[in-house]
Design a protein around this nucleic acid. Sequence first.
DNA 1: TTAAAATGTCTATTGATATAGACAACCATA
DNA 2: TATGGTTGTCTATATCAATAGACATTTTAA
Lengths: 251, 251
Amino acid sequence: MAGRGGMAGLKQVQRQTGVALWRQIADRIREAISTGAYDETGMVPPETMLALQFGVNRHTVRSALAALAQEGIVRAVQGRGTLIERKERLNFPITRRTRFTAGIGDQAREMRGLLLDEAQEEASAEIARWLGLKPGEQVIRLETLRQADKRPVSRATSWFPAERFAGIGAAYRTGESITKAFADLGLPDYVRATTEVTAAHASAADMADLELTPGAILLIAKAMNTDLEGVPVQYSISRFAADRVQFTIEN
Amino acid sequence: MAGRGGMAGLKQVQRQTGVALWRQIADRIREAISTGAYDETGMVPPETMLALQFGVNRHTVRSALAALAQEGIVRAVQGRGTLIERKERLNFPITRRTRFTAGIGDQAREMRGLLLDEAQEEASAEIARWLGLKPGEQVIRLETLRQADKRPVSRATSWFPAERFAGIGAAYRTGESITKAFADLGLPDYVRATTEVTAAHASAADMADLELTPGAILLIAKAMNTDLEGVPVQYSISRFAADRVQFTIEN
DNA sequence: TTAAAATGTCTATTGATATAGACAACCATA
DNA sequence: TATGGTTGTCTATATCAATAGACATTTTAA
């Protein structure tokens, strides 16, 4: 975990960069929590120690901790310290048989898939290319939000050939899963053909849906699924809250 | 690209969040450039228009553009407008035969791999688990920086079983590639076993090495390579500048 | 019971961020 | 050579971010 020379990571914050110190510190602490750095005590180090570590005033650290408390990640108790509330990071395997709900599996008690919006529209050049259609052909677009234990995990936009998958919106709304919706429409099985992974800052809309704060990071997976004959059945752009998931690619 | 209802993304910045407006705006413009939103003109919209779009003062937009100019992404010309300088994003395929240098291939004219540091140390519990060693066994750690056309692309930390790969640091320094270093040490071929992808903010050290500014995003790939018999030969944590690369997983 | 250690609250001050308005300098083109 | 559209510079003001210090309140453990 140490830096190049072996020196521990002091002074990991920078001034006058447009990102407030308290936010930089909040980000570092959030990450330290998620990597298990404070698992021994179950607590964040004392404010005075953090202030010394980051080379800032104690009040600045307090601002950072207040933000984390707001997110529900820590809880401060006067006289005792600042306790860590959650630290899970869902693992999302990406394989030829990638399915969202099954992939999360037993890592969460309750999985939900909400349909936020549904529309039929003409395929853009990019969507047409991915689905093997001609630009302008009809596609169905689903806007979905996936939650694990009430906590929003990803916001996805998916496109399907309209002719073959008419009614997939309703099917998704009842089954709350793409796999089930496909099954309802007579496609019992499908495979993940390609996945592109990038990262970016969250848009305002994604921030709202995923309950994120500005500066938050998204892992973005652009995926194409095909049926067993290799015919494209779905193209989707899924935005995951980066501090809540990791992808695993097994070859 | 539009949001849920189809409304375009106005007011994509938020106040009082610890991230300065000018930085949020810089991030949005940087992303718009990398997705090709301004390719028709080759220029960013006029400052007054951007100010209107984001709902901020023109001076705030100017701060954002100044930051992008500092990064070399745009160049302002008085009287004409603000020209876009670069927009490339390297594609990095992740397959069973993933290799960094070959993967980038013809996307860059010149690939370099620099050895920043080398050390022999005892394997931590995590490293030992990945490499199939007992905790405390000797491993060699390499700190490397990979560049494409002089531009830093990734900072990696790799661990190798010390006994089998003694001298890999020197081999990497001459060949500037893990593949070549393995070949030098009598391992002509190897395969990518698992890859875990996450995203996070850059640490101060990574910011310096990758020439990033605070708030910048990293794509982090934790990978394990094995020889053809399935014996682990390398575990690495590579940090990529997220706005310069994307990963592609083909199944 | 006491003391140490931790978080909570308050006041005051300085520097960075954002807004507002006005005008200069420069470029392309009619 | 005007003119409209663009970036560059300056002044002024309000708000947010960060530091500094003092002291209260609560918990834990000696």
